[in-house]
């Protein structure tokens, strides 16, 4: 499905959703403001993954590495140097974008499952270093109590900052997907061989995609630090990576806002299921099983399919 077709739904849905998001802190308790902040952060993360997964057809199995790297970049700049917080916030996307490019140079030579597995091994390497380097990263304890500037220090302030940054990032990603690059990237997803026959340097585009995905994931990572005030190695553990993939699948990965919805559902479920039972992953596992059996196009995919008969036949195996 092309990006153009979604445009109308976006505007149709966008205005009321925006109004609710803007007015949220006036109407609900701090807990819900925090919850929505977390949804935005996680949704941004999932959307950045989907940039390469759903729109690039790349088996990005270890996306959390970029998220975690962004979070640690901010945390380390703030706690280890005397530099201002904002420098840390800028350092995050630079570090992860660069990491995305470096890992991309190594991985884009391969495709599909091999690509994904090599990425997991590289990502695990990064994780292992973070996990063990107590002196620098805090090891498996992580770093806690990371200060935030006064301007965005309150929960409402952090919320509006998160809202502004994630909406800007989402808009930027949307624009990129509508650009010639985005269109070509989707072409590569559908048919890399055909793209080569058209003179497109497939791997170069995939490399750019990796860099972008890393860049935006780390924005989410830096926002996470803003909201939570802490980092820990689980932020770049591989199980989180697959959880993000689930979010994309749940919302529908051929739709731009699908992962946003998927992330919102997962965050909500985890929060409220977590109140009643410690067996949250059991619930998540069962949800995922049902999803794969009955709803492979995702929730939003199902809604959109009923609105207009589109959805092409999947060809790429």
């Amino acid at each position: 499905m092309g990006m153009e077709k979604e445009h109308r739904h976006l505007i149709f849905l966008g205005i009321p959703v925006m109004a609710v998001l803007l007015l949220l802190p006036l109407g609900v308790s701090r807990f819900y403001v925090y919850l929505v902040s977390l949804m935005l952060v996680t949704g941004l993360l999932a959307t950045s993954l989907n940039l390469v997964l759903g729109f690039g057809g790349m088996y990005q199995f270890h996306h959390a590495v970029f998220y975690g790297t962004g979070a640690y970049a901010l945390a380390l700049v703030v706690t280890k140097t005397g530099w201002p917080w904002w420098i840390g916030f800028l350092a995050a996307p630079i570090c992860s974008g660069a990491l995305g490019l470096i890992m991309g140079v190594i991985t884009v030579r391969l495709s599909k499952l091999y690509f994904g597995m090599l990425q997991i091994s590289l990502g695990s390497l990064v994780w292992a270093i973070v996990f063990r380097w107590y002196a620098f990263t805090g090891g498996d304890d992580g770093i806690h109590g990371i200060p935030v500037p006064d301007l965005i220090g309150s929960s409402t302030g952090a919320y509006y900052f998160t809202l502004a940054v994630s909406l800007t990032a989402l808009f930027a990603m949307y624009r990129i997907l509508c650009s010639p690059f985005g269109r070509t990237f989707q072409g590569i997803r559908d048919n890399p061989e055909r793209c080569r026959a058209l003179g497109i340097h497939v791997q170069r585009h995939q490399l750019v995609g990796e860099g972008l995905a890393g860049f935006f994931a780390s924005v989410a990572g830096a926002l996470f630090v803003t909201v939570e005030g802490s980092v820990f190695p689980d932020l770049l553990f591989w199980t989180l990576s697959l959880e993000i993939v689930i979010m994309c699948l749940l919302g529908g990965w051929f739709i731009f806002l699908g992962p946003m919805l998927g992330a919102a559902i997962i965050v909500t479920l985890r929060t409220f299921v977590g109140i009643y039972t410690e067996y949250w992953t059991l619930v998540l596992g069962i949800v995922l099983m049902l999803l794969i059996f009955f709803l492979p196009e995702g929730a939003l995919g199902l809604v959109l399919r009923h609105r207009e008969p589109a959805a092409g036949s999947g060809k790429e195996a």
Binding site: Y59, F61, K112, L113, L242, V245, I246, L249, E278, Y279, W280, T281, L282, L284, G285, I286, L288, M289, I292, P296, G314, E316, A317
Partner: peptide, 24 residues
């Protein structure tokens, strides 16, 4: 007949379920 990505995610879901069952 599903593609690899779906199979991988499906086995991941089993991993999640088994993990909690072991805990249970």
């Amino acid at each position: 007949e599903r593609e690899h990505l779906m199979l991988l995610l499906f086995t991941f879901s089993i991993m999640l379920v088994f993990g909690d069952l072991v805990k249970l």
